[in-house]
Each structure stands twice: as C-alpha cells, then as structure tokens.
Design a protein around this nucleic acid. Structure first.
Lengths: 193, 193
DNA sequence: CGCGACGTTGATTTGCCTCAACGATTGTGG
DNA sequence: CCACAATCGTTGAGGCAAATCAACGTCGCG
C-alpha cells in the first residue's frame, strides 16, 4: 500500500523501517471517485495528499465561474494548497479529482507531531516547497514568454501520458487557452506527423 | 544601516540584540550602480540580497536574447535565485540592478553557520520561500487567466510607485507584453482619467 | 432512451504583435 | 561640456494568433 509513498520520500531523505512504521500510524487513506472535491476555495486546507493512483488537480475558481488549472497531480505527486496548509490561512485554490483516485494523506496536526519525532521530515517537506516554487517560477516564465502553441508542444512532450487521461478542457485551462483553440492545435499536430 | 533589514526579519521572528550582533558579523554590504549584473544565468547563486535601497530585478535570458522579468525587488525585498542558492545548483535566472542600490547580503556558507547558532532563522528563510511560492502561484494564475490590459491595471494598482521608477520595457517584460503595446495601454488609461 | 457535457469545425472578431518612422532622453567619447 | 550615438517611448499601418459565437456529431450518464 505504502510502497510508492515511501519510495517518493526516499528520493530526498532516508527513513528506517521503524520510522516508517511511526509515520504510517499518522497516515490516512481516502478513495475518491471522479470529480470529487477535496478542498473548496475559501476553506482551510488541513490535509496534504499523496496520490497513489488516479489524478487530482489544483485550480482556481474565478468570480465569473471560469476555472484555471494550476497543477495536475497524477500518481506519485503531492497535492495541497501549500500556503493554506502551512499557515492555516484560507485556501486560495481548490482541489478535486480528475479520476477515481487512491490518496494517502496526512493532517497538518499529525505532520506537526511527526516533525518532532522525526525532524528530518521537515527537510523533506521544505524540499517539496522548494520544488513547487521552482516549478511555478518556470511555468510563469513559460506563460509570459511563449505562444500557446509552444506551451502546448512542451506540455505534450513533458506529460505525454496525461494527454489522453485528462479532458481537453482541463488541459486548455492549464495552458491558459480555450478548448476550441486547443482542438485546433491538436489537429495541426496530427497533420504534421 | 541595518534597521530596515532587521525590521523586515522581525515581521516573522523575534531576535534579541545579541542575536542581531551575531548576524551582523556575517553580513556584507554592496553598493551597485544602475545596470550592474549581480548574478549571471548559469553560475551558482551564492548570495542572497536584501535591498536596503534601490531596486533589483530577477530575469530569464532566452536563447534568442530576449528577456523575461520574473520579479522586481525594490527596497525591503529579498533577491536570489532561490533554488540555486538553496541547492548549489546552476542558476536559471539572472539578477541585475535597475537603479543604484545598496544591498545587504549573506553568503550561503555564512547562512548555514547562522542556522546552527540561531535555529529560528531557518524558520524565517523557510517562510521567505513559502511566500515566494505563493507569489509565483498567484502570478501564474494571473498570466493564464487575464488579459494584458487587466494585468497592467493590477500592476498599476499594486505597485504604483514602481511605475515611474522602472523603464517601460522592463515592466512590459514583467507583464509578458511588448513595450509598444504597453505604451498603448498607458495612453488608454490616461484618456480615461 | 434522452439529456447534457464535450470536442470539432467554420466564420468572424479582437487583442496583441511586428515593422517602421519619429522625437525625446540618456549616455558617451572627444 | 558639448556633440553625436544609442536607447527609449510613442504612434500608425498592417498582420497574425487566439478568442468568441454558433452549429453539429458523439459520448457518457441518469
């Protein structure tokens, strides 16, 4: 059950079997169906999800009802509203499932406990933040400096498996374009091959 | 000299006078003229700058010579390539001065020392990262979901003082538009008033 | 089965870019 | 300190990228 979870953590820090057992005690598991909402914008994000299988998305809901997908989180990714989770503030973003998913998650309170017992976990979660920061910075840079077509091509190369798992309207929202135009870009791409 | 610096830190953590003296020993000061390069893309970012006065920018230089401004750092802001500084990896971004500036800065090595002596400093720098992450996320969201005009208006309201300090080509690059179009937006705005 | 959401396609419009020319401002070498 | 060059911001003309609007077939779901 937790293999993928600990494999993910072991990329950055080493845990003894005993520490792993400690951690498991604090973990919870949730199974969702497609299109379940895990966090509503405006609530407080009290849980941090690790995606064992399936896929989540983090998005912002705009005043006019439109949505922008900030991030897709397929298996082996972490999902939360980072600032809300860390500071207990109101969440700026929502989280929902794009597929039936299995999630391992930990509450903010339990994580605080674990930090005292296993301080090196702090390091791991700090690194998660850093990586997320780097990712956002890179995506901002992309959004500001490249055309929709280029962003689409880059997405296509970077996440080829997500292309057929995620509906096009969600991919379009992630890229900052309309579903109509994404459809046109796809068509051009097929012609080229 | 260090009032602004410690006032900035005190927003998040409390330091005793003794701790402040400890920290000052590890700080350095640099004065730059306009358009000095403090970090070149591809080097390692070994210093973290606090802007006492003046203004820096963090930018990406693209293969074709074009630049994208990721962030402006006027007085009371911090500037570095976060990932490069934290991990010792190659910098993805450059840093240069937009004005004659006075900078208080600390090296990565000295900061590591201070972390051992004053552990709560870790907390402060972790919070800096978190805030930077939140900022990037918000800007990404803006870049993906709003028109150039709206982004300009928001910038105008959020940083009114920067408008006349920073050249328009740099503001345009920050907003992801051309200087020509920024000029048009400015004109429209004046007409409206 | 029938409704509603989704993806495609075409026609049209609009936002923003490119290119080019021109003063104004800034910087620089003599 | 002046003269000249370079950079910058503005403006107009024209073009392209991407949005909007609308119509239609398909698919998933109640």
């Amino acid at each position: 059950m937790y293999e993928l979870f600990f494999k993910n953590i072991s990329k950055h820090i080493a845990l003894t079997p005993e520490e792993q057992r400690h951690i498991i005690k604090k973990l919870q598991v949730k199974r969702t169906t497609k299109n379940e909402i895990l966090l509503q914008q405006g609530e407080t994000c009290r849980e941090m999800y690790f995606v064992e299988s399936g896929c989540l998305r983090i998005y912002q809901l705009h005043a006019d009802g439109a949505e922008t997908n900030i991030l897709f989180c397929p298996e082996n990714w972490w999902a939360s509203d980072g600032l809300s989770f860390a500071n207990g503030t109101v969440a700026e973003y929502g989280i929902s499932s794009l597929e039936d998913s299995t999630l391992v998650f930990i509450s903010a309170a339990n994580l605080q406990n674990l930090f005292h017992q296993i301080p090196k976990l702090e390091r791991f979660f700090r690194l998660l933040f850093q990586n997320a920061f780097g990712l956002m910075q890179r995506r901002l840079n992309l959004a500001l400096s490249t055309s929709s077509k280029d962003r689409f091509e880059i997405f296509y190369k970077q996440y080829p498996t997500l292309i057929d798992r995620i509906s096009q309207k969600h991919i379009a929202s992630y890229l900052g374009i309309t579903p109509v135009f994404l459809s046109i870009l796809r068509k051009r791409r097929v012609k080229r091959d």
